[in-house]
Structures are given as structure tokens and as C-alpha cells.
Amino acid sequence: MQTFFSIGVDALAYGMILFVISIGLSVTMGLMRVVNLAHGAFAMIGGYIASYAARDLGLAYGLAVILAVAGTIIIAIPLERFLYRRIYGAPELTQVLMTIGITFCVIGIANYVFGPTLKTIPLPPDLQGPVDLGFRTIAAHKLFAIFCGVAVALGLWYLIERTSFGVKLRASVDNTAMAAALGVRTKIVYAASFALAVGLAAFGGVIGAELLPVEPYYALRYMVTFLVVVSVGGAGSIPGALIACLLLGAIDTTGRYLVPEYGEFFFYLAVIAIVWVFPRGLMGRAK
């Protein structure tokens, strides 16, 4: 029972972290139809910035989070402007090559600047130690991750369903040309969503650093994990991404608990099985 509960909490926390990181990828892929293999690299950059701010500069955790998000967006803006814009609407292979190129560069530079070792982000006292829920205790940072996941999901839902930006975003996703004809400045919508996606990735990279440790190969290690969320959940779908993340979180965590030796093997097997069963995603949308 105790194991069951621990697996459940860990799976939920892991799933929520995945959600925070990958939902931005899902939105941009739905909008710009760019296969962005470098998304994990932005989460990693966020992690590095936060680690530097909190550990090396001794800043407060909250400040480190803000710096990480802002810093990652600032790094991403020229990339969007000069590299990503060239591949909107390009063939898939071109997009894959460009974004892998970006990923490799980021890994190489991170390795050079920060070295090959793991970087930790010291948690504030409130998030260290356990929280007593009355019947069980769980680690505070996991509870925090779950909370953040729910908050991001609700916030995004509000943004997309209830604000004028959301209307423009949905219109651009459905039909870019039509939205542009109706006066939506799609380039700005693109840029804003890209910034939002990158910011969320960085945020997820920071709050998830306990579960997905920050090191140079982060961007490659979790690449397939983030991509499968979008592939299974359907590009642009918040509920789809949420379900996919919880499913992946459950599989990954269960694997680690039950067969720690073969955890990764079963994870990849499960990824293949899921995509095999839902080649068009959970919602069955073609393309």
C-alpha cells in the first residue's frame, strides 16, 4: 500500500513536470507545425540559469525561477527570429536537422560553460522535507510540482479559452491564412506563443530539476519523452497532453520502482507500444 501510494505520488509529480515542459512544445507544434527537437534544450537552459542564480549567486529560489524563465526567453528570441522562422512550413527533414543542430550546439556550449557534472538547484526550506497530509506524508517539492502542473494547466486553459490572445491563437492554429486575412498579426502570435512555450519549458526545467537532473545531455535524454507527449496527446491539445503526461509518468515511475534494472528499457518499449496503438494520437486526429 505504501509503495502504491509512493508510486502514485511520484508518477503524478513526474507527469506534471512533463506536462509543464511539453505543453509549450505541443502548442507551438499545433500552431507553427514545426517539429522542434530542441525544446528540451530550453528546459535545460532554464535549469542551468536557475542553478547558477540560486547556487552560485545565492539568490532566492523564486528569483532564480523568474531569472531562468526570463533568461531562457531572451536566449530564445534571436533563435526564433533567425533560425526557426526559416523552417516554418519546411519539409520535416529540414526541421529535424535544424532543431537537432540547435540541440547539439546548446549541449556543446553547456558542456563547455558548466562542465559535464550534474547541477543542483537548492530548494528553499519550505520545499525541503516532507509535508504531512494527515494520513500520509509526501515530499514538499513533489507536492509543489503537482501544484505547478495544475496551475499551468488551468492558466493555459484560461488564456486560450477566455482571452482575446487565445481567440487569435486558436484562429491561427485552425487556419493561419484565414486568421491573417481577418487582421490577426500571425507573426506576433507566433512569436508570443514561442516565447510562452520556451518560458514554460524553462519553468518546468527548474521545478523538475529534482526528478530530471540538469546536465548537458538532458536535451537528448528526454527528447523522445517530450516529443511522445505531443505525438500521443495531439499537437495543441491541453487535455491530450495532460493524459499523455500522466500515462507516461505512471509508466516511467512504475518501471523504476518495480524493475529498476530495466527501467529505461521498459520505458522505451512502452513508448513504442503507445505510439503503435495510437499512431494518430489519443484524440485520433490525422496529422
Partner: peptide, 12 residues
């Protein structure tokens, strides 16, 4: 798969 699903399968 096709498109993204194909890519994901190839990486996995």
C-alpha cells in the same frame, strides 16, 4: 506512424 509519430518511434 507518420510525421511526428514516425520520428518518435525512430528515436525510441
Amino acid at each position: 506512424g507518420h510525421g511526428l509519430a514516425q520520428l518518435v518511434l525512430s528515436i525510441a
